[in-house]
Design a protein around this nucleic acid. Structure first.
Length: 525
RNA sequence: GGCCCCAUCGUCUAGAGGCCUAGGACAUCGGAUUUUCAGUCCGAGUACUGGGGUUCGAAUCCCCAUGGGGUCACCA
């Protein structure tokens, strides 16, 4: 068996890339790559919206950001195009004609109202509804008359009701359905367009897809699709239905419609809040525009593709009993369908965060600096990213930040290094607690200021010993001065190592900030 | 409701009859380190939905129950 594996992901142009859909796409892509096969991107735009182009942009963007390339599809072409369903109607038409000619489908002249009435009757009798095939009973004369008067009809696939359909799903195993319980599905609307379930079968066969890997909610569709493949004389693909992703703390499918509930869920609230904090600074709106259900959220907030890919890979799949951190290559090497978990998995923000943190820590300093620089620039905090002095400052801050930098936008929490001295905003609470109300803080700060002004060296180790010598000579504890000093120069009670911070800012800026603090404190007391 | 799928720590998972007094990770809770926050290190607790079988032996196989979910469109 040397047949090339061909897989496909078929998004519809919705205007954003759903994180759950991305996980499905990743698995589909992974299976192709694992087998040195072909990954195809096909656009399910049978629904014809006006702005397909714009609605597709975020989807392509997400694939590109994560580095999931496609071998056939929009932009790259391929031998089985076009890759937009809206451009493949001739193939669907031909398939409908074929089924009609072979008596495997029929024109149904029943009105939607009639069908609805039939359904109501069945339901009130507590019986399984299967459509009544009235149009099959039509005489030739009646049929000719309907045809002549142009009576509208849909084309239904004629389900073999005496048959059971079975598939051997690569993750679920043997699944079967009873044809007698199935409704003849509409494959072509009265306006001549075909339905998804049918177009998919035609396309999958035509594009020689070997493995249909998709989310579990399509499992029920598969009965019809398997039957359709059979009727069309296709070699059916292998189906693999992977579990969907559930909302955190829930067992229900993660869905955009529940966005308001998710916003307030304890698990996701932090992520929404972070968006509201960061996005406006970048001029990208807020959490109403980008939320954690969208791949672009992660990109815009400065997550690493490595982190997201790692997290997504581990949602419903594992390499073994211990391995958590994996590069894409490692996952490709080891990705097999039989290791896909059957039950749904919840998206865990904390765990995702931990993958992200791991990969951020792995990143070389220069890459971290470049990433942060880009965010600082977007926020208007630095203007010239090529400026050597700025690069050096960012490098020092990032080094001082060490593990505290989890996502690139975290750098925006350390504005104190990038704002002018007189523009530094003091945290009110910290300022009051550590400077105004702290006993002797102002006096100590004043005394220390003079020593800083004349210090021989202004690097972190030197400052460290200077401050320690200072507290010894003053007979106070170190805690009495460090907090005040930190607030004075950074405006906040928390941050990177104090002496690193002082050194990065340099003598002049530190003194200027201490002076300003002293003035403000005197005014307040 | 019919059909279909699923069921191990709070969460993501390992487990394909004896290696399981159930392993790992995240989270949680202790302790240590630290000028703060974070981190790091050490430690702790927490799970096989229930009931029947099969077997010398079951988290693992079978059946039933229960629970959860998906799907039932001229949407995709």
């Amino acid at each position: 068996m040397t047949a090339t594996v061909r897989t496909r992901f078929a998004p519809s142009p919705t205007g954003y890339m759903h994180i759950g859909g991305m996980r499905t796409a990743l698995f589909v892509w992974l299976w192709a790559r694992h087998n040195n096969g072909t990954f195809i991107l096909r656009i399910d735009d049978t629904d014809q919206q006006r702005n397909v182009e714009a609605a597709l942009a975020p989807i392509f963007r997400a694939f590109r950001w994560l580095g999931l390339n496609w071998d056939e599809g929009p932009d790259v072409g391929g031998n089985f195009g076009p890759y937009y369903q809206s451009q493949r109607t001739h193939l669907y038409q031909a398939a409908v004609e074929k089924l009609l000619a072979e008596g495997k489908a029929f024109k149904d002249y029943d009105s939607p109202e009639q069908i609805a009435a039939d359904r109501a009757v069945a339901e009130s009798a507590k019986q399984q509804f299967v459509n009544i095939r009235r149009s099959l009973e039509l005489t030739d004369a009646e049929r000719a008359q309907f045809e002549a008067e142009g009576r509208p009809y849909v084309v239904r696939f004629l389900v073999p009701r005496d048959q059971r359909v079975a598939i051997d799903d690569a993750v679920r195993g043997h699944v079967e359905w009873d044809g007698a319980l199935m409704v003849d599905p509409v494959i072509m609307r009265s306006n001549g367009t075909v339905l998804y379930n049918f177009a998919t079968v035609v396309d999958d066969a035509h594009m020689q897809i070997t493995h249909v890997i998709r989310a579990e909610e399509h499992l029920t569709n598969t009965a019809v699709q398997a039957l359709l493949h059979q009727a069309l004389g296709n070699t059916p693909p292998v189906f693999a239905h992977i579990p969907f992703i559930t909302a955190p703390g829930s067992t229900k499918k993660l869905a955009k419609r529940d966005i308001d509930k998710l916003r307030n869920s304890p698990q996701l609230k932090k992520m929404f809040d972070r968006a509201d904090e960061v996005l406006p600074q970048l001029g990208l709106g807020d959490s109403k525009i980008l939320n954690p259900l969208m791949v672009e959220y992660y990109e815009r907030l400065g997550y690493l593709p490595e982190g997201i890919l790692n997290a997504l890979s581990r949602l419903g799949w594992s390499l073994d009993d211990k391995t958590e951190f994996m590069t894409l290559d490692t996952v490709i090497q080891n990705f097999t369908l039989d290791r896909i978990v059957k039950s749904p998995a919840g998206l865990d923000a904390e765990k995702l965060q931990s993958y992200q943190q791991h990969w951020m820590n792995q990143l070389p300093l220069e890459d971290k600096v470049a990433g942060c620089l880009s965010f600082l620039q977007q926020a208007g905090l630095v203007s010239q990213t090529s400026d050597a002095a700025i690069q050096s400052t960012v490098g020092q801050v990032v080094t001082g930040l060490a593990d505290r930098l989890r996502i690139f936008s975290d750098i925006l929490d350390y504005k104190e290094f990038f704002v002018a001295d007189d523009a530094l905003v003091y945290d009110e609470k910290a300022f009051k607690q550590r400077v105004v109300d702290a006993p002797e803080a102002v006096g100590l700060l004043t005394a220390l200021r003079e020593q800083l002004a004349t210090a021989a060296a202004f690097d972190a180790p030197a400052l460290d010993s200077l401050v320690h010598a200072f507290v010894e000579s003053q007979g106070v504890k170190i805690g009495q001065i460090v907090h005040a000093l930190r607030v004075a120069v950074t405006g906040r009670a928390v941050g990177i190592g104090l002496f690193d911070a002082l050194a990065i800012l340099g003598r002049d800026r530190c003194l200027s900030r201490i002076d300003r603090t002293l003035r403000l404190a005197n005014r307040q007391s």
